[in-house]
Design a protein around this nucleic acid. Structure first.
Length: 300
DNA sequence: GTCCAGGGATGTG
DNA sequence: CACATCCATGGA
């Protein structure tokens, strides 16, 4: 048994992030029981199954409960796990500028109070983030979770710990070799199957990587590279930049969920137009992804 | 049967 | 660049 404690920043609420993580009972990339999160993570060659909970001092208690034999717990593994958790919960972000903006924003003012301490939870694995974006296009969330589960259970790998199975997301290397016929049992559109396979091929070929996308820390160039790939439009590009690359200025402005949130919070009888969205978000400068993430929370 | 869901591609002005 | 049109599939 090995335990590490990850310190948390100001303006962080474990409970709020937990509520977000619990949003679908059909989630297959982690399991939550008694406010503890169980997840298998891939660390290069090694895997680990971790249990995350709130430590008594408010930090995050991370226990390795499987996936890697104890004699292999080197400092590098422990560091990699801590890094993963820091990235996953976006713990390096100083939220105070966002809350300052939100305090005088009509859409965000009460929203940030309601979800105080919520972070944009990440999807650190680029291929997983891309697939989740592609799978989620133009279908309802419940069906998206079902498709993801089928995909993971068919082509991912399970790691056992304490008698439970924990799934690792399929690897791009494996998916790149498939044909659309191999994805037919998932019952998603043929186009989506093509997009998933092509995304995998672009990662395997090296055209697409987290390193390349982060180069220069330029949202515009990352967006341009993502959009150049078939099946990735502006929405998916910004979604990936938000959840995986973690630019706080990513802004999936075409998102139907965001439109519904704004319709709900303003009491409009219709969804906002693009012009209205631009006007309403004009003051979010640099924090669009946090604004979007908080507004999404109004939907469930 | 109808409508829509956390869009994308392609074509046109 | 802004817009129109077609596309694809399951669930409520």
């Amino acid at each position: 048994m090995k335990i590490i404690t990850v310190p948390i920043p100001e303006l962080f609420s474990y409970g709020q992030n937990l509520v977000y993580l619990k949003r679908s009972p059909n989630e297959c990339m982690y399991r939550i029981e008694a406010d503890r999160i169980y997840k298998a993570i891939s660390l290069g060659e090694a895997n680990a199954v971790i249990e995350v909970s709130e430590a008594e001092d408010g930090g995050l208690r991370v226990e390795i409960i499987g996936g890697v034999a104890e004699q292999y717990y080197g400092d590098n593994i422990l560091e990699a796990i801590e890094e993963y958790v820091v990235d996953w919960f976006d713990l390096k972000r100083d939220l105070s500028p966002f809350y300052e903006i939100a305090a005088s924003d009509p859409l965000l003012k009460e929203t940030v109070d309601q979800f105080y301490g919520l972070r944009v939870m990440g999807i650190p694995d680029l291929f997983e983030a891309l697939c989740w974006g592609i799978i989620g296009q133009q279908i309802n969330l419940a069906f998206a979770y079902t498709l993801k589960r089928r995909f993971v259970e068919l082509y991912g790998r399970a790691v056992e710990a304490n008698g439970e199975l924990h799934w690792l997301f399929p690897k791009a290397e494996d998916i790149a070799l498939l044909t659309v016929a191999d994805l037919e049992p998932l019952r998603m559109s043929v186009k989506k199957s093509e997009y998933l396979i092509e995304a995998a091929q672009n990662i395997v070929s090296g055209k697409l990587s987290k390193e390349t996308l982060l180069q220069g820390e330029c949202l515009k160039s990352a967006e341009a590279l993502l959009v150049s790939i078939r099946g990735i439009g502006p929405w998916t590009a910004h979604y990936v930049i938000m959840r995986c690359l973690r630019f706080p200025s990513a802004f999936p402005i075409d998102d139907v969920g965001l439109h519904n949130s704004i319709k709900h919070i303003t009491g409009m009888d219709r969804k906002p137009t693009k012009q209205e969205l631009l006007k309403l978000s004009a003051g979010w400068g640099g924090w669009e992804s946090y604004a979007t993430f908080y507004l999404w929370r109004l939907l469930y």
